[in-house]
Amino acid sequence: MLRLASSLALILIATAPSWAGELAKPAAEPILKVQGAITTMNDGETAAFDLSMLDALPQHTIKATTPWYDGEHEFSGVVIGDLLETLGASGESVTVTALNDYSAEIPMEDIKDYPVILATRVDGEELSVRDKGPLFVIYPFDEHPDLYNEVIFSRSVWQVASLTVH
């Protein structure tokens, strides 16, 4: 009876899609690492994600004109706020670091106030490193034209490799 109960509990734990403090390990090469003040990790002190893990999270699309592309484009990806919530993050800001070691700090207010996304796709096409991929921080310039300034541009990090919450 006791064995049955404990094996049932194991099954329940194994099949739970998201359990606070539990995150599946990425199946493919991870493209994003989140570290710092988070409660859910899957690789030591960090939470690592591959593309399919990010795709599994709720998606958001921003259609906007940016300084980095000609004309209007559709950017889609995971909302940073949702991502951090999943990880039980708490803090004042998030430092976003790119593959080329460029980094910028995004205040938590931005993330709370706007649906800022980590874009994985532009016009439905996956972003490659050659085209500022794999992840690109995109602010909702379409809904909030006042975001169209240098400060926000500097926070719009491309080729994102990791987030550090603190």
């Binding site: 980095w68 592309y69 490193v129 050659r130 085209d131 500022k132 491309w158 080729q159």
Partner: peptide, 18 residues
Amino acid sequence: SMRFDLLFSRTHLLTQGS
């Protein structure tokens, strides 16, 4: 390869957008 991709991503920036 990674370094080349990063360099390559720059080239487009120089010939497109604003």
